[in-house]
Amino acid sequence: MTLLTIEGLSAGYGGAVAVDGVSLALKAGETVALLGANGAGKSTLLKAVLGLVPARGRVVLDGVEVGGLAAEKRVRLGLGYVPEGRRVFAGMSVRDNLEVASFAGTAERGRDLERVLALFPQLREKAGERAWRLSGGQQQMLAVGRALMGRPRLLLLDEPSLGLSPKVAGEVFAAVRAIAAQGTAVLLAEQSARRALAAAGRAVLLRLGRVVHDGPADALDAEALRTAFLGDPILGDPIPGGSESS
């Protein structure tokens, strides 16, 4: 069953187009790796799906067109979002960071909190600590856990390994695989192609804001991946840098 449909989606910043006519679909429970160099449009695409940047085109979540809805309403309909750079509430405790993201009643919120703490045992140990005291890896776990408290059917995950050591990044990706195994669909924007492809069943490559490949992750052509990240040496179109529209 198709959970998310994106048709002809375009978005950008200050007149510059970062996502240009993107169309793709995700099935319920599917994990899709969204790959491309800095500036390819990965982060902008996730923000456009959530409604954080102005966009043209259609975004349909489980049969409901959400393109005209505010981000909060999209979250309530089943979208979860983990932004690049984590952005936890630094002055709040770990527990409060998690509970503030829940729409459920007291009993259900407690069960959701327990599920998140079981997924990230390090957060259980730090439940009463202020978020600013956590390590970068623990803050990333907290950001993922906060998104899960909204009971998303689709998790939009932006650069989860950014700034993390290989060991901690591996722990975060293990949690992503566990989340997917529990039935939550994941759209994963990530610079580390190796980690993303290991976690995903399908890969979508973006180049200059457009989809240049969409297919099984384990069948991804190495040349297509190289071109998406480095550009076409014949055409001379390397991907421009820049993190805001990545």
Rank of each mutant, 00 (worst) to 15 (best):
A118I: 02
A228F: 02
V19R: 13
S165Y: 13
R58H: 09
A222Y: 02
A11S: 10
F89E: 13
P240T: 09
M141C: 02
F120W: 06
S10D: 07
K167M: 08
G209H: 13
L156D: 10
G236Y: 09
P54T: 03
V100G: 02
Y81N: 05
V88A: 08
K42H: 14
K126T: 10
L117F: 06
Q140G: 03
R202V: 15
A90L: 04
E190R: 04
A147F: 05
A178Y: 02
R95T: 03
V100S: 15
H213C: 05
A28W: 01
G12D: 10
S10M: 05
A143Q: 04
G110F: 00
Y81I: 04
S10A: 15
F103T: 14
R202T: 10
L69M: 15
A147Q: 06
Y13L: 04
Q139H: 08
V75Q: 14
D20A: 13
D20F: 03
A219S: 14
D96H: 08
P54K: 11
A127D: 10
L187V: 06
R133D: 06
G14M: 02
N97K: 11
L134M: 09
G145D: 11
L50A: 14
S192D: 15
L123H: 13
D158L: 00
L206T: 13
G78P: 00
G85R: 08
S23D: 15
I6N: 12
D158V: 01
A174S: 13
D237N: 15
S135V: 01
A16I: 05
V186Y: 09
G63E: 11
A174G: 07
A180R: 14
L113S: 04
V49M: 12
F173A: 05
A104F: 10
L34N: 11
G209P: 03
A199F: 10
G201K: 10
V19H: 12
V186C: 05
A107N: 09
G128K: 07
V32R: 14
L119A: 07
L230W: 07
V100A: 13
G57C: 05
L9G: 12
L35D: 06
I239M: 15
Q138A: 10
A180N: 14
T5E: 15
L154C: 04
A174Y: 02
G110D: 10
L123T: 11
G201C: 12
A180Q: 15
S135K: 09
G51Q: 04
G128R: 15
A189I: 06
R202W: 08
T44E: 06
R177N: 04
E190Y: 01
L24Q: 12
Q139A: 06
E7Q: 15
A25R: 15
A25S: 15
Q139Y: 07
L77E: 13
V66K: 04
E72M: 11
F173Q: 12
L148H: 12
A16Q: 05
I239A: 15
T44H: 09
A203Q: 07
P240S: 09
L3F: 04
G150V: 03
T106I: 02
V100P: 00
L156K: 14
D221V: 06
D112W: 06
P238A: 03
V172M: 03
A101N: 05
R210N: 07
Y13M: 01
A189T: 08
I239T: 06
L52M: 12
P160K: 14
R109F: 01
G150Q: 07
Y13E: 05
D20H: 12
D96N: 10
V17S: 07
A224W: 01
A55M: 05
G236W: 02
L187T: 10
A28R: 15
R194M: 05
L9S: 10
G15V: 06
